[in-house]
Design a protein around this nucleic acid. Structure first.
Lengths: 391, 391
DNA sequence: CTGAAAGCGCTTACAG
DNA sequence: CTGAAAGCGCTTACAG
């Protein structure tokens, strides 16, 4: 009964209750091609026909099948997003920006959480490729990452943010971690600290290794030894960091300051300090990276190197869309940007101890380095400029 | 050149560099149907043939096209996840569990962030339907939600968690918010508070309205008036709540305790208290809902009604898979579960003020209600039992 | 401006 | 156990 002038399309099974383009065509008295044309807003469709088709669409509550469209067009309007841990506010905030920006451009995002496990990374990348996503955004690559390396090699649209490959290949947007860490260490040195602990992330991540490098460089520049007993792994997790900090704080000569590889770990360090009856910052200075929202809370007031999380996420998507448009171009000349860090001085570093004790928790004081920070009311101003941009 | 015994499949365009099932078939000297069979682990394939095919697959680095498979099978192995705000740790933690559980069962998750906007909700649901996702998990429905209501009506696989519809229809798993709020209020009353403020979420959400109801009920039961000046909207956001709290705290007769509709807002209340020079809990008791991770931090120590976030997320997926298997069954008899809340007493409510001041921040004291809480070392034990389960 | 037809890359009765 | 064929629901040259 349902077959019209169209070529037979087979009977509809029980599972297929949704009207198809054929149903619309029949009802509007046109071909499926024409329906497709009005659906896709082709220019040359007779107004009358267009209206008829639209009426039929509405009458049938027709909803075009994106799966079929994806197959025909060979594009899915889907992006993969691979993060290490969505419960880390850094990733949650970037993910939010990514999802929102993608939506604004007609893309959806498949969320993948790897927990920094190579196995899951590999599995997710494989699945995303099978799903023919138009591109993959990595918030979490490993320094040595054959999987991502292969993707880049194959010219698969990829954008990394936060972390990058050791090889330096591919499109990425990252913080200038070495400088950030150098400046943060310098900040502590300027405050008089000479025994500064460092709790790192995982060894195989660019963020961890670059931040460790900046820390060492700053110590060296200050003529201080890089004491390996002061460096402990914290896996970018609060609990791990808490334990690591406890060990550091039980050393015969305990550090007077601890830098954590990210804010989450800095929170863990603060816990550890409390566990041992040490006051922050009077007995121990604590600093981190990321400037997650809670860092600004008045009970926390964490001094930290800020990252422009929303901006990074937005940018990753904008780049991705460009790359999808012309993959070969960006294979030759990858998009790479290194963002200038902004130091946000709050209470935990102790900088405010002597002067203003009012708890003006978001003041951003001038930085020791060549780039001046900014102070502001309420939300601290963050004005990073890009130091190095390759396009 | 590439055409074999198979029906002509047309030339490969530049975009299609990926090998197809036809390429594998040709190489292995079998039909495409046979390749499909070994791909899908059909029982009756001659071992020799199976090996040949597998070899060909490996040689060509063949990756089955999930899009094509989805079209043919009429199932996408994809779930939609609709949350209000992925940067709220409550959603991040549930999302994490959802993504991970789904992955374990061969499903991927499209993340949708609505910001509690009807417009975005509607848009996302429409897109998810066009994408033919196998089901949608809602962490965020509105009390009156024609969009979700229509989905449920149509028998589209849906699971709600955290919030539910006013109509009570559909599958859901939520906290017993009214009891939770009642008990939390009662807890404050038992501590001697008689003037308790309440900062609610958005009006059109079951969480907000049920929690407000519990609060009022507890006041009434204590013979206290429900003073509308003490109730302010906070939109489930820290910043809004901070402002709302400031207003409350400037009232001629200011509240001695403030309940926030969730932990994020409770953090905002603590900020407000600090802004006005009030100490928590000495001058102001503060409590919330959710027990997000930071609530346990020693600088925060927020008393709160815990939710089993990971468990909720896991359960939502497990249910979803069952529903996908037999949608009609659960249309008749929806899966509905109401979880018993667990009160986690920490510092901000002031309960520890007189007795133990050691900062034993996670002790869970017996609750005033009929259900006893539990105390534990380190992580507070949470042992909610289900009061009501319908299947 | 519009339709017929081929194609996207799979799966799955249907035969044999 | 395996292949030929039809089908999933779209899009898009190709004609006219």
């Amino acid at each position: 009964m349902r077959r019209g002038r169209q070529p037979a399309r087979g009977p509809r099974t029980a599972k297929t209750l949704q009207p198809t383009i054929g149903d619309v065509a029949r009802r509007a008295g046109v071909s499926r091609a024409t329906v497709s044309r009005v659906l896709n807003e082709y220019p040359h469709v007779r107004p009358q026909v267009r209206t008829d088709v639209q009426r039929a669409i509405r009458a049938l509550r027709y909803r075009p099948d994106q799966v079929a469209r994806s197959l025909a067009r060979r594009e899915t309007k889907t992006l993969g997003l691979v993060v290490a841990d969505i419960t880390n506010p850094f990733y949650a905030e970037t993910a939010r920006a990514i999802v929102e920006t993608a939506r604004g451009h007609g893309y959806n995002v498949i969320l993948c959480n790897t927990d920094n496990l190579h196995r899951l990374q590999e599995e997710y990348v494989e699945v995303l490729r099978q799903r023919r996503v138009d591109g993959i955004i990595f918030g979490s690559v490993f320094l040595d990452d054959p999987v991502v390396e292969a993707l880049v090699e194959a010219g698969y649209p990829c954008v990394m943010y936060n972390r990058r490959l050791r090889s330096g290949r591919g499109n990425y947007i990252v913080l200038d971690n070495a400088s950030a860490s150098h400046d943060l260490t310098r900040h502590l040195l300027d405050l008089g600290h000479r025994h500064i602990g460092f709790i790192t992330g995982l060894r195989d991540l660019s963020t961890a290794s670059e931040r460790l490098r900046g820390y060492r460089a700053a110590l060296r520049a200050a003529g201080l030894p890089a004491d390996s007993r002061l460096m402990r792994p914290g896996a970018f997790k609060a609990e791990m960091a808490q334990r690591a900090a406890q060990e550091l704080l039980k050393l015969p000569r305990r550090p007077t300051a601890i830098m954590a590889g990210n804010d989450l770990m800095a929170l863990g360090v603060m816990q550890a300090a409390g566990d041992l009856g040490l006051r922050v910052p009077e007995d121990l200075a604590v600093v981190g990276f990321d400037d997650i929202e809670i860092a600004a809370h008045r009970q926390i007031q964490l001094t930290t190197m800020a990252q422009q999380k929303a901006e990074m996420g937005r940018m990753a998507v904008v780049w991705m869309l460009e790359i999808i448009r012309d993959p070969r171009r960006y294979r030759r000349e990858p998009l790479q940007q290194i963002l200038t860090p902004t130091l946000v001085v709050r209470r935990t570093c102790g900088a405010l101890l002597r002067g203003d004790k009012s708890g003006d928790r978001r003041a951003t004081v001038p930085r020791p380095g060549r780039r001046a920070g900014r102070s502001g009311e309420g939300k601290a101003l963050r004005v990073p400029s890009s130091r190095k941009e390759k396009r």
